[in-house]
Protein backbone atom coordinates (compact mmCIF):
# COMPACT_ATOMS: atom_id res chain seq x y z
CA UNK A 1 0.00 0.00 0.00
CA UNK A 2 2.89 2.32 0.73
CA UNK A 3 3.85 1.97 -2.90
CA UNK A 4 1.20 4.41 -4.03
CA UNK A 5 2.57 7.14 -1.80
CA UNK A 6 6.10 6.92 -3.14
CA UNK A 7 7.46 10.03 -4.81
CA UNK A 8 7.89 8.43 -8.22
CA UNK A 9 4.32 7.23 -8.30
CA UNK A 10 2.89 10.58 -7.25
CA UNK A 11 5.08 12.49 -9.67
CA UNK A 12 4.14 10.01 -12.38
CA UNK A 13 0.43 10.49 -11.74
CA UNK A 14 0.63 14.28 -11.70
CA UNK A 15 2.74 14.45 -14.86
CA UNK A 16 0.33 12.14 -16.57
CA UNK A 17 -2.72 14.10 -15.41
CA UNK A 18 -1.26 17.32 -16.77
CA UNK A 19 -0.66 15.70 -20.14
CA UNK A 20 -4.17 14.26 -20.27
CA UNK A 21 -5.69 17.65 -19.40
CA UNK A 22 -4.07 19.41 -22.36
CA UNK A 23 -6.58 18.75 -25.17
CA UNK A 24 -9.49 19.37 -22.78
CA UNK A 25 -8.03 22.77 -21.89
CA UNK A 26 -7.75 24.02 -25.46
CA UNK A 27 -11.21 22.84 -26.42
CA UNK A 28 -12.94 23.89 -23.20
CA UNK A 29 -11.35 27.35 -23.07
CA UNK A 30 -12.43 27.93 -26.66
CA UNK A 31 -15.92 26.74 -25.79
CA UNK A 32 -15.95 29.06 -22.77
CA UNK A 33 -15.50 32.05 -25.06
CA UNK A 34 -18.34 31.09 -27.35
CA UNK A 35 -20.68 30.19 -24.49
CA UNK A 36 -19.93 33.42 -22.66
CA UNK A 37 -21.10 35.23 -25.78
CA UNK A 38 -24.27 33.14 -25.81
CA UNK A 39 -23.43 30.44 -28.34
CA UNK A 40 -23.40 26.75 -27.51
CA UNK A 41 -21.02 25.05 -29.91
CA UNK A 42 -21.55 21.29 -29.90
CA UNK A 43 -19.32 20.91 -32.93
CA UNK A 44 -16.14 20.92 -30.84
CA UNK A 45 -15.50 17.22 -31.38
CA UNK A 46 -15.74 17.63 -35.16
CA UNK A 47 -13.47 20.68 -35.13
CA UNK A 48 -10.96 18.73 -33.07
CA UNK A 49 -11.00 15.81 -35.47
CA UNK A 50 -10.48 18.00 -38.50
CA UNK A 51 -7.73 19.92 -36.67
CA UNK A 52 -6.10 16.66 -35.64
CA UNK A 53 -6.09 15.38 -39.18
CA UNK A 54 -4.96 18.59 -40.89
CA UNK A 55 -2.10 19.18 -38.46
CA UNK A 56 -1.02 15.57 -38.73
CA UNK A 57 -1.15 15.57 -42.50
CA UNK A 58 0.70 18.86 -42.89
CA UNK A 59 3.36 17.80 -40.37
CA UNK A 60 3.61 14.40 -42.02
CA UNK A 61 4.13 15.77 -45.52
CA UNK A 62 6.19 18.88 -44.76
CA UNK A 63 7.95 17.77 -41.59
CA UNK A 64 7.13 21.14 -40.10
CA UNK A 65 5.15 20.90 -36.88
CA UNK A 66 4.43 24.63 -36.64
CA UNK A 67 2.97 24.58 -40.12
CA UNK A 68 0.87 21.64 -38.98
CA UNK A 69 -0.34 23.61 -36.00
CA UNK A 70 -1.19 26.54 -38.26
CA UNK A 71 -3.13 24.17 -40.51
CA UNK A 72 -5.15 22.95 -37.53
CA UNK A 73 -5.90 26.53 -36.56
CA UNK A 74 -7.09 27.40 -40.06
CA UNK A 75 -9.20 24.25 -40.32
CA UNK A 76 -10.79 24.94 -36.93
CA UNK A 77 -11.31 28.61 -37.75
CA UNK A 78 -13.03 27.79 -41.03
CA UNK A 79 -15.38 25.40 -39.29
CA UNK A 80 -15.97 28.12 -36.70
CA UNK A 81 -16.73 30.59 -39.48
CA UNK A 82 -19.31 28.26 -40.98
CA UNK A 83 -20.79 27.66 -37.54
CA UNK A 84 -20.95 31.40 -36.95
CA UNK A 85 -22.78 31.99 -40.21
CA UNK A 86 -25.30 29.29 -39.39
CA UNK A 87 -25.94 30.39 -35.81
CA UNK A 88 -25.60 34.17 -36.16
CA UNK A 89 -26.90 34.95 -39.63
CA UNK A 90 -29.28 32.06 -40.12
CA UNK A 91 -30.16 31.94 -36.41
CA UNK A 92 -30.28 28.17 -36.43
CA UNK A 93 -30.96 26.06 -33.36
CA UNK A 94 -27.48 25.82 -31.87
CA UNK A 95 -27.66 22.34 -30.42
CA UNK A 96 -28.76 20.72 -33.64
CA UNK A 97 -26.47 22.63 -35.97
CA UNK A 98 -23.57 21.87 -33.60
CA UNK A 99 -24.26 18.16 -33.92
CA UNK A 100 -24.32 18.68 -37.69
CA UNK A 101 -20.89 20.26 -37.56
CA UNK A 102 -19.62 17.46 -35.36
CA UNK A 103 -20.74 14.90 -37.92
CA UNK A 104 -19.24 16.98 -40.72
CA UNK A 105 -15.86 17.04 -38.96
CA UNK A 106 -16.07 13.34 -38.22
CA UNK A 107 -16.92 12.43 -41.80
CA UNK A 108 -14.56 14.93 -43.41
CA UNK A 109 -11.52 13.92 -41.35
CA UNK A 110 -12.31 10.29 -42.12
CA UNK A 111 -12.68 10.98 -45.84
CA UNK A 112 -9.48 13.03 -46.05
CA UNK A 113 -7.63 10.39 -44.06
CA UNK A 114 -8.64 7.72 -46.55
CA UNK A 115 -7.92 9.85 -49.59
CA UNK A 116 -4.60 11.26 -48.46
CA UNK A 117 -3.09 8.71 -46.08
CA UNK A 118 -5.03 5.49 -46.32
CA UNK A 119 -3.33 3.91 -43.35
CA UNK A 120 -2.28 4.88 -39.85
CA UNK A 121 1.13 6.52 -39.82
CA UNK A 122 3.29 8.12 -37.17
CA UNK A 123 4.92 11.52 -37.21
CA UNK A 124 7.78 12.94 -35.20
CA UNK A 125 5.73 15.28 -33.03
CA UNK A 126 6.61 17.95 -30.49
CA UNK A 127 9.03 16.32 -28.07
CA UNK A 128 9.38 16.99 -24.39
CA UNK A 129 11.06 20.39 -24.07
CA UNK A 130 12.26 20.98 -20.50
CA UNK A 131 12.17 24.64 -19.54
CA UNK A 132 15.67 25.76 -18.47
CA UNK A 133 16.15 26.39 -14.72
CA UNK A 134 12.49 25.74 -13.85
CA UNK A 135 12.70 22.10 -14.88
CA UNK A 136 15.50 21.62 -12.35
CA UNK A 137 13.25 22.39 -9.39
CA UNK A 138 12.70 19.13 -7.55
CA UNK A 139 9.26 17.52 -7.98
CA UNK A 140 7.54 20.66 -9.34
CA UNK A 141 10.01 20.91 -12.21
CA UNK A 142 9.48 17.32 -13.14
CA UNK A 143 5.71 17.60 -13.09
CA UNK A 144 5.18 20.95 -14.76
CA UNK A 145 8.28 21.89 -16.70
CA UNK A 146 9.28 18.70 -18.45
CA UNK A 147 6.41 18.57 -20.89
CA UNK A 148 6.02 19.42 -24.56
CA UNK A 149 5.33 22.93 -25.83
CA UNK A 150 1.66 22.26 -26.51
CA UNK A 151 1.18 21.48 -22.81
CA UNK A 152 2.79 24.77 -21.75
CA UNK A 153 0.68 26.79 -24.15
CA UNK A 154 -2.50 25.08 -22.93
CA UNK A 155 -1.81 26.06 -19.34
CA UNK A 156 -0.80 29.61 -20.29
CA UNK A 157 -4.10 29.89 -22.07
CA UNK A 158 -6.02 29.75 -18.79
CA UNK A 159 -4.77 33.03 -17.24
CA UNK A 160 -4.87 34.62 -20.69
CA UNK A 161 -8.51 33.69 -21.14
CA UNK A 162 -9.31 34.85 -17.62
CA UNK A 163 -7.60 38.17 -18.32
CA UNK A 164 -9.35 38.73 -21.63
CA UNK A 165 -12.78 37.84 -20.27
CA UNK A 166 -12.54 39.81 -17.06
CA UNK A 167 -10.07 42.63 -17.53
CA UNK A 168 -10.50 43.89 -21.07
CA UNK A 169 -13.18 45.80 -22.96
CA UNK A 170 -13.41 42.92 -25.38
CA UNK A 171 -14.18 40.57 -22.49
CA UNK A 172 -16.81 42.93 -21.20
CA UNK A 173 -18.43 43.03 -24.63
CA UNK A 174 -18.36 39.24 -24.89
CA UNK A 175 -20.01 38.86 -21.50
CA UNK A 176 -22.63 41.52 -22.15
CA UNK A 177 -23.53 39.93 -25.47
CA UNK A 178 -24.00 36.62 -23.66
CA UNK A 179 -26.03 38.11 -20.85
CA UNK A 180 -28.16 40.72 -22.52
CA UNK A 181 -27.63 41.09 -26.25
CA UNK A 182 -30.41 43.70 -26.59
CA UNK A 183 -28.76 46.01 -24.11
CA UNK A 184 -25.35 45.45 -25.64
CA UNK A 185 -26.76 46.18 -29.07
CA UNK A 186 -28.38 49.43 -27.90
CA UNK A 187 -25.00 50.51 -26.56
CA UNK A 188 -23.45 50.06 -29.95
CA UNK A 189 -21.82 46.66 -29.45
CA UNK A 190 -22.18 44.52 -32.54
CA UNK A 191 -23.61 41.25 -31.26
CA UNK A 192 -22.94 39.57 -34.60
CA UNK A 193 -19.28 40.63 -34.70
CA UNK A 194 -18.61 39.53 -31.15
CA UNK A 195 -20.24 36.17 -31.71
CA UNK A 196 -18.39 35.68 -34.97
CA UNK A 197 -15.18 36.38 -33.08
CA UNK A 198 -15.86 33.98 -30.20
CA UNK A 199 -17.12 31.15 -32.38
CA UNK A 200 -14.13 31.40 -34.72
CA UNK A 201 -11.81 31.60 -31.72
CA UNK A 202 -13.53 28.56 -30.26
CA UNK A 203 -13.11 26.68 -33.53
CA UNK A 204 -9.46 27.66 -33.76
CA UNK A 205 -8.75 26.42 -30.24
CA UNK A 206 -10.66 23.20 -30.89
CA UNK A 207 -8.47 22.68 -33.95
CA UNK A 208 -5.42 23.20 -31.75
CA UNK A 209 -6.87 20.73 -29.24
CA UNK A 210 -6.93 18.15 -32.03
CA UNK A 211 -3.38 19.06 -33.03
CA UNK A 212 -2.21 18.70 -29.43
CA UNK A 213 -3.26 15.06 -29.71
CA UNK A 214 -2.12 14.15 -33.21
CA UNK A 215 1.23 15.96 -33.32
CA UNK A 216 2.24 16.32 -29.67
CA UNK A 217 0.77 13.74 -27.32
CA UNK A 218 0.08 10.74 -29.57
CA UNK A 219 1.93 11.41 -32.82
CA UNK A 220 -0.59 9.39 -34.81
CA UNK A 221 -3.90 10.06 -36.53
CA UNK A 222 -6.67 7.52 -36.46
CA UNK A 223 -10.27 7.97 -37.55
CA UNK A 224 -12.48 9.23 -34.74
CA UNK A 225 -9.43 9.42 -32.49
CA UNK A 226 -10.97 11.99 -30.14
CA UNK A 227 -13.64 9.43 -29.15
CA UNK A 228 -15.91 11.80 -27.25
CA UNK A 229 -13.24 14.04 -25.76
CA UNK A 230 -14.78 17.11 -27.40
CA UNK A 231 -18.10 16.47 -25.72
CA UNK A 232 -16.42 16.10 -22.35
CA UNK A 233 -14.78 19.47 -23.03
CA UNK A 234 -18.24 21.02 -23.50
CA UNK A 235 -19.33 19.45 -20.22
CA UNK A 236 -16.24 20.89 -18.54
CA UNK A 237 -17.40 24.39 -19.42
CA UNK A 238 -20.59 23.82 -17.44
CA UNK A 239 -18.56 22.12 -14.76
CA UNK A 240 -16.23 25.11 -14.58
CA UNK A 241 -19.17 27.50 -14.40
CA UNK A 242 -18.08 29.38 -17.56
CA UNK A 243 -14.87 30.54 -15.91
CA UNK A 244 -11.35 29.83 -17.14
CA UNK A 245 -10.09 28.76 -13.71
CA UNK A 246 -13.15 26.58 -13.19
CA UNK A 247 -12.50 24.89 -16.52
CA UNK A 248 -8.90 24.31 -15.47
CA UNK A 249 -10.03 22.78 -12.19
CA UNK A 250 -12.48 20.51 -13.97
CA UNK A 251 -9.99 19.41 -16.61
CA UNK A 252 -7.36 18.68 -13.98
CA UNK A 253 -9.77 16.81 -11.73
CA UNK A 254 -11.00 14.59 -14.54
CA UNK A 255 -7.51 13.96 -15.91
CA UNK A 256 -5.94 13.32 -12.54
CA UNK A 257 -8.51 10.68 -11.70
CA UNK A 258 -7.85 9.08 -15.09
CA UNK A 259 -4.13 9.12 -14.33
CA UNK A 260 -4.71 7.64 -10.88
CA UNK A 261 -6.84 4.81 -12.20
CA UNK A 262 -4.28 3.98 -14.90
CA UNK A 263 -1.56 3.87 -12.28
CA UNK A 264 -3.54 1.97 -9.68
CA UNK A 265 -4.17 -0.85 -12.11
CA UNK A 266 -0.47 -1.57 -12.37
CA UNK A 267 0.40 -1.34 -8.69
CA UNK A 268 0.42 -4.87 -7.47
CA UNK A 269 -0.40 -4.21 -3.84
CA UNK A 270 -3.75 -2.74 -4.87
CA UNK A 271 -5.91 -5.22 -6.68
CA UNK A 272 -8.49 -2.84 -8.11
CA UNK A 273 -10.78 -4.35 -10.70
CA UNK A 274 -10.18 -2.66 -14.05
CA UNK A 275 -13.93 -2.29 -14.57
CA UNK A 276 -14.22 -0.29 -11.38
CA UNK A 277 -11.08 1.67 -12.17
CA UNK A 278 -12.26 2.95 -15.54
CA UNK A 279 -15.55 4.09 -14.00
CA UNK A 280 -13.83 6.29 -11.42
CA UNK A 281 -13.38 9.49 -13.47
CA UNK A 282 -16.97 9.43 -14.67
CA UNK A 283 -18.50 8.68 -11.28
CA UNK A 284 -16.47 11.44 -9.70
CA UNK A 285 -17.47 13.88 -12.44
CA UNK A 286 -21.15 13.14 -11.91
CA UNK A 287 -20.81 13.57 -8.15
CA UNK A 288 -19.05 16.91 -8.51
CA UNK A 289 -21.53 18.09 -11.15
CA UNK A 290 -24.45 17.24 -8.90
CA UNK A 291 -22.79 18.89 -5.93
CA UNK A 292 -22.03 22.05 -7.85
CA UNK A 293 -25.32 22.31 -9.70
CA UNK A 294 -27.03 25.72 -9.65
CA UNK A 295 -23.98 27.23 -7.98
CA UNK A 296 -23.61 29.67 -10.85
CA UNK A 297 -26.14 30.32 -13.54
CA UNK A 298 -25.39 30.07 -17.23
CA UNK A 299 -25.03 33.16 -19.45
CA UNK A 300 -28.60 34.37 -19.79
CA UNK A 301 -28.59 34.45 -23.59
CA UNK A 302 -26.93 31.05 -24.01
CA UNK A 303 -28.39 29.19 -27.03
CA UNK A 304 -30.70 32.13 -27.85
CA UNK A 305 -30.24 33.52 -31.35
CA UNK A 306 -30.18 37.32 -31.50
CA UNK A 307 -32.46 39.15 -33.89
CA UNK A 308 -32.10 42.91 -34.09
CA UNK A 309 -35.53 43.07 -35.54
CA UNK A 310 -34.59 45.30 -38.43
Amino acid sequence: MSEIFSATVIIGILTSGIRLATPYLYAAIGETFSQRSGVLNLGVEGQMLLGAFVSFYVAFTTGNLWLGLLGAMIAGALMGLAMAYVTVNLQAVQGISGIGFYLFGLGMSDLLFKMLLGTVETVKGFSVAPIPVLSKIPVIGEIFFQQNIMVYIAFLLVPTAWFILNKTTLGLKIRSVGENPDAADSLGVSVAKIRYFTIILGGTLSGVAGASMSIALLNVFQQNMTSGLGFIAVALVYFGAWRAWGVLAGALLFSMVQAIQLRMQIIESISLSPDLAVMMPYILTIIVLVASVSRVRAPAALTKPFDRGD
Binding site: M213, Q222, S227, P274, A277, V278
Partner: peptide, 22 residues
Protein backbone atom coordinates in the same frame (compact mmCIF):
# COMPACT_ATOMS: atom_id res chain seq x y z
CA UNK B 1 -3.68 -1.99 -17.89
CA UNK B 2 -7.27 -2.30 -19.18
CA UNK B 3 -8.40 1.10 -20.37
CA UNK B 4 -12.06 0.14 -20.78
CA UNK B 5 -12.33 1.22 -24.42
CA UNK B 6 -11.57 -0.04 -27.92
CA UNK B 7 -11.44 3.46 -29.36
CA UNK B 8 -9.87 5.84 -26.83
CA UNK B 9 -6.50 6.45 -28.46
CA UNK B 10 -5.56 9.19 -26.00
CA UNK B 11 -6.11 6.98 -22.97
CA UNK B 12 -4.17 4.15 -24.61
CA UNK B 13 -1.29 6.58 -25.12
CA UNK B 14 -1.40 7.68 -21.50
CA UNK B 15 -1.53 4.05 -20.36
CA UNK B 16 1.71 3.55 -22.30
CA UNK B 17 3.19 6.62 -20.61
CA UNK B 18 2.15 5.22 -17.25
CA UNK B 19 3.89 1.93 -17.98
CA UNK B 20 7.03 3.71 -19.08
CA UNK B 21 7.12 5.86 -15.97
CA UNK B 22 6.72 2.66 -13.93
Amino acid sequence: NWIGSFSDVALAAEAANTHISA
